[in-house]
Each structure stands twice: as structure tokens, then as C-alpha cells.
């Protein structure tokens, strides 16, 4: 009996002392990582009208998963190196290949996409409706999974095309 208590005490201290090695806690949830992974994956299936050395993935406004997006910086997509940047307005975003419209800008989605409708910028958001000049990809929850809808009409108008595979995996294609 006492031996068991002793064993327990060793466990206890072992457990408490081991983590002291690191002071910084990673405080992000899988959903952030999951969404960031979706955004990254989308870029693998989109063709832009012209090739660039950099694939500029821009975030407008505040997004909960900006830190997770940052982890993809430096990766290569079809020869282009990913850069994660913040932009402050839709006009700023014209030179980006991807624009993630942050949660804080959800009210402005229509005016943002309207401004960008003639630029080859892949717009992604988590809300918005699908009109001809709306966001290209809507990332959303469906039951206990993530799902995405594609606005092919709007993407075509901006000069972007999606691979067949991505269209197949989309929940809805408009």
C-alpha cells in the first residue's frame, strides 16, 4: 500500500515538473488549424491567369486563424512561394492572389467583392451570399464537418479557374 502511494507521488511530481521546461503555451484550437489548412489546400486547385514568383495570400480585417495561416508561409504552390500578408482595404488587395475576408469585415463583403470583381483575386469568406460578384469560395460548417461552396460564375469572371477535383468536392457549385 505505501509503495503504491510512493509510486503515485513520483507520478505526480514527474507530471508537474516535466512541463515546466516550456513557458509558452500554444493556445490555438484545431478549428483554426483546420480552416487554415483548407485555405492552403484551395490554392492547390486554382489556376490564376498569370504565374508569379510569389503567391500572396492576404487577409483583410481580423481573422481568428491568421496565426495558423502564417505557418504556411514559405511553402511552395506550383512553383510560387506563399506569403501571408495583411491588407487594410480592398484596393490594397488587388495585387494578392488570395484574399481571405476576415470575420470583422463580414458586413462589407459585398462592397469588397464588387471592387475586386475584375481582378484575378480568389476571394474567400465564411459568410456572404452568391451573386455574380460575390465571394468565390464560401467556407462553412455543415453538421459536424467543414464544407465549402464554390461560385464558379464569379471566379470565371475574375479570370480564375478551379480544377475538376475541387468542384467535385464542393458541397455546392453555383
Amino acid at each position: 500500500m505505501t509503495r503504491n502511494i510512493q509510486k503515485f507521488i513520483y507520478f505526480f511530481w514527474g507530471m508537474l515538473l516535466l512541463p515546466m521546461g516550456s513557458a509558452l503555451a500554444t493556445d490555438t484550437i484545431e478549428i483554426c488549424e483546420l480552416k487554415a489548412a483548407f485555405i492552403y489546400n484551395f490554392t492547390l486547385f486554382v489556376t490564376w491567369p498569370k504565374n508569379n514568383n510569389y503567391l500572396r495570400m492576404c487577409v483583410l480585417g481580423e481573422s481568428t486563424y491568421f496565426p495558423q495561416m502564417k505557418t504556411y508561409e514559405g511553402r511552395s504552390v506550383n512553383g510560387a512561394t506563399i506569403r501571408i500578408e495583411r491588407v487594410t482595404s480592398a484596393d490594397d488587395a488587388r495585387g494578392c492572389q488570395v484574399l481571405l475576408i476576415g470575420e470583422s469585415e463580414q458586413d462589407q463583403i459585398n462592397s469588397i467583392t464588387k471592387k475586386l470583381k475584375d481582378s484575378p483575386v480568389l476571394t474567400i469568406s465564411e459568410s456572404g451570399n452568391f451573386s455574380p460578384d460575390a465571394v468565390h469560395i464560401l467556407l462553412t460548417r455543415h453538421l459536424d464537418r467543414m464544407a465549402f461552396d464554390i461560385n464558379q460564375t464569379a471566379a470565371k469572371a475574375s479570370g480564375l479557374s478551379f480544377s475538376f477535383k475541387m468542384l467535385k468536392l464542393a458541397r455546392n457549385v453555383y
Binding site: 500554444t26 493556445d27 490555438t28 484550437i29 484545431e30 478549428i31 483554426c32 488549424e33 483546420l34 487554415a36 489548412a37 483548407f38 492552403y40 489546400n41 484551395f42 492547390l44 486547385f45 481580423e62 481573422s63 481568428t64 486563424y65 491568421f66 496565426p67 505557418t71 504556411y72 476576415g102 470575420e103 470583422s104 460548417r141 459536424d144 464537418r145 467543414m146 464544407a147 477535383k165 475541387m166 468536392l169
Partner: peptide, 30 residues
């Protein structure tokens, strides 16, 4: 910390999704 917004922490063990394919991601239960 460095971002205005961040997700809530959870007791989840963080899976590394960075090498998941799109098909894999669609299968992740959230």
C-alpha cells in the same frame, strides 16, 4: 497575443492538418 482575434482553446490535442489533403480535411469532425 499578436492577433486581435483567436479561437477558443480547448482540451483538444492539436492534430497537424498541414499535410492533409482536401478530402481528408472534409472528413475531420469538428
Amino acid at each position: 497575443f499578436f492577433s486581435l482575434f483567436a479561437c477558443a482553446p480547448s482540451t483538444a490535442n492539436a492534430t497537424d492538418f498541414s499535410d492533409f489533403t482536401l478530402e481528408d480535411l472534409l472528413e475531420v469532425s469538428i
